[in-house]
Simulated assay, not measured.
Amino acid sequence: MKILIVNAGSSSLKFKLFEMPNEDVLASGEIERLNMPGSKVKIKYGDGEVYKEEQDKIDYEQSAGIMLNRLKDLNVIEHLGDIKAVAHRVVAGANVFDKVAEINDQTLKQIVDLGEIAPIHNPSEAKYIDIVASILPDVKQYAVFDSAFFHDVPEMNGQYGIPHELTEKFGIQRYGEHGINHTYITQEAMKMLGTDKADLVTLHLGSGSSIAAERDGKCYDTSMGYTPMNGLLMGTRAGDVDPALVPFLMKRMGASADEIIEMFNERSGMLGVSGISSDMRDLEESDDSRAKLALDMFLTRVIKYAASYITELDGVDAIVFSGGIGEHDEWVRSEVCKKLRWFGIKLDEEKNHAQQPGDMSAPDSKVKVFLIPADEEIAMVRDVFKYQN
């Protein structure tokens, strides 16, 4: 049974086609730098074959068409009808969804309505669902929710210090994001530790970034909040800001609340600070002082959250790096571990430079340092196949 997993992020589209139940990956691809110059397509398929393509400013609709059509063009499948199910990563399920859901008119409407919580994610994910449905009208589609992992967050970490009646009335709480990957890397880290009783800090660092604290496999705290805008400085998202800035900027700019939130989501973060790019690679190659400032701000916030979570957990057994930046940026890993050395964390710099997944700890490190590549797709396909059977 062929199941296509669609993982649409704020700046990239990842996908994998699985043959289940064997979990064989027939093809995997990524279209990165969406809506930016130099959008890149890369698809791995067959016996180590790689297809590459580059266009300027591939948008969401074009990327969905490329994803489906290239699978057929490259003879990964004979017909689009060979795909029997499609599963989408959906960021915000709030307290409406705590597990996989089959897409129908009602669930799609709920996903769209929850766009208020994830305005740069849920609407585009719903659009992908619509696009795929128009091309594969007879194929069942499913949603796997990032927020499901955070249902276990204790109330003291999940609630805000606002009047309790508003928390109850409007369901306002910390919903988090990247839960599918935090779940996956937590499970993998505990396998590497040989126990299911471990305290961890997991760092999903990419264009969208979040840090989570886990106790015995369950989320204890997370940097993202009611929306994915909270927490770390990100590619285009501001992260933590004083809420009083919203009315202040509305008055000074003559803007609406929605316009200010759009700015915080799409024109802030490393892009807004640097004025150059939202991509870490571009900033590291730049000599501009604002690019350096953006990097320093990103790094400082990662360190602040990681250190606070280690303290909150009374120490940890391991920290885990994942996500595009976490997996590929040795400088970030090195700097974070240097600042966390007071907790007994020590990175093996040779292993860090080699960037091989696995244990990157120095022999005398009191805390394990793991590099575990994100694999949200395998976590998703397992959930969907289990749901179907």
Rank of each mutant, 00 (worst) to 15 (best):
I211V: 15
H178G: 14
N157W: 08
L203T: 10
E125V: 11
H204G: 07
H164L: 04
S134C: 08
A143H: 06
E214F: 15
P119V: 04
A133V: 03
P119S: 05
F149Y: 14
E188Q: 15
P154A: 09
F145S: 01
V153W: 10
D130I: 08
D216K: 15
N122V: 02
E125A: 11
D138Y: 11
F150M: 04
I131W: 04
L200R: 13
M156P: 00
K191I: 09
D113C: 00
I180E: 01
I120T: 11
G206W: 02
L166I: 13
I117M: 07
I117A: 01
I129S: 02
T167L: 13
L114R: 05
P119K: 02
P123V: 03
K169L: 05
A118P: 02
Y160L: 09
N157V: 03
K197F: 06
S147F: 08
E168W: 03
Y160G: 08
S134M: 04
L166D: 11
G179I: 04
P163A: 08
D196G: 10
I162S: 12
G176D: 03
E125R: 12
H182I: 13
N181F: 00
N157I: 00
Y160S: 07
I131V: 10
E125P: 00
I172T: 07
G208N: 06
F170M: 03
I185R: 03
I211F: 08
H178P: 12
E125H: 15
T195S: 15
G206T: 09
L203H: 13
D138V: 07
A126P: 00
M156I: 14
A143G: 11
K169C: 00
M192A: 14
Y128C: 05
I185H: 01
N157M: 07
V201A: 09
I129T: 07
V153A: 10
V153N: 03
D152S: 15
D130A: 13
Y160M: 09
Q159K: 13
H182E: 08
